[in-house]
């Protein structure tokens, strides 16, 4: 690519970018608009054309207030806490387990290594819906039904393969000599792992963490099937239980407001970690 782009090229690029951004963000824009409308105007289409529909005629934050009015007894706050707790715990456990597993796979030769990797891949490809029935029965018998653990466990089993694969790729990039240097310098294998390998693999760990967090945060299938109350119901499932003013009105505006709120943690999560992900930490480790 030459450094000087022609004006024509620039315009084409710009157009392309605008189209992609609009395509990606328009639904978000629409749901924000919905969340600001009063219940009366949500389903009404005034004769004001496209922009009139998009821009609420009278913006209100009532829908957001309604979500939190009853505090923990309300429809939203407890599920939100459940969501944050479950997703974070699942992410932390997944990253710790995945980094041990990935380290072993990247560094050691042990019998059944390919079987472990193949098995992990098979699990990731397994249709989640087919496990819901058995899990429902098992969790009922084990007392895990409608608990945090009852959701964390299936989230781990479906997100671990992905996390392991990501981390194996990152660990393989780290020169083995660094670890040997640490060992010669007097570190135990675990110290070498903790002080040298882990800091260097942080971009990989954050990448994997984001993937696991998003998976757990967005899951609807397990959340709706394995919970029955606010004790462990997460936001995606809780949205389905929102009630309108009467049984004939759908609470579209409230759902939209909740959807906007649950999007925020993901955005924050990605914004915080993206710099760590991009940072090329290994530069200068060896000659290069």
């Amino acid at each position: 690519m030459t450094e000087q782009r022609t004006a024509q090229e620039r315009i084409i690029w710009l157009l392309g970018i605008v189209v992609v951004i609009f395509y990606a963000l328009f639904p978000v824009l629409w749901i924000i608009s919905l969340s600001l409308k009063t219940p009366a105007t949500v389903t009404v289409t005034p004769n004001e054309g496209f922009w009139g529909t998009l821009v609420p005629s009278e913006a209100t934050f009532k829908n957001y207030e309604a979500l939190f009015t009853d505090g923990l007894d309300g429809p939203f706050l407890k599920p939100l806490i459940n969501s944050i707790g479950i997703a974070l715990i699942a992410t932390v456990i997944a990253i710790v387990l995945a980094s041990f597993a990935a380290y072993a796979i990247a560094r050691l030769d042990f019998p059944g290594k390919t079987a472990v990797l193949g098995g992990a891949l098979a699990i990731a490809m397994f249709p989640a819906i087919s496990t819901v029935g058995p899990l429902f029965d098992m969790w009922r018998a084990l007392g895990l039904y409608d608990t945090w653990a009852g959701l964390i466990i299936p989230y781990l089993s479906f997100s671990l393969p992905l996390a392991i694969y990501t981390l194996v790729a990152f660990f393989r990039e780290i020169p083995w000599e660094l670890e040997q240097a640490a060992q010669v310098d007097g570190a135990t294998p675990f110290q070498a792992f903790r002080k040298v390998i882990v800091p260097l693999a942080t971009p990989g760990m954050f990448t994997a963490a984001i993937l696991v967090f998003i998976f757990a945060w967005n899951d609807f299938l397990f959340a709706i099937s394995l919970t029955s109350s606010d004790a462990s119901r997460t936001v995606p499932a809780a949205l389905a239980f929102f009630t309108g003013d009467s049984q004939f009105t759908q609470p579209f505006a409230n759902i939209a407001a909740a959807a906007v709120i649950v999007t925020i943690p993901i955005i924050i999560f990605v914004l915080i970690f993206q710099r760590r992900i991009v940072a090329g930490l290994t530069s200068g480790a060896v000659k290069g």
Binding site: A181, V184, G186, A285
Partner: peptide
């Protein structure tokens, strides 16, 4: 004995400096 218990120091071909 493990490398750490041998009290030796090694210089690697690729230096193996800790980049962080």
């Amino acid at each position: 004995k493990a490398p750490k218990d041998r009290d030796i120091a090694m210089v690697f071909q690729n230096y193996a400096l800790y980049p962080h």
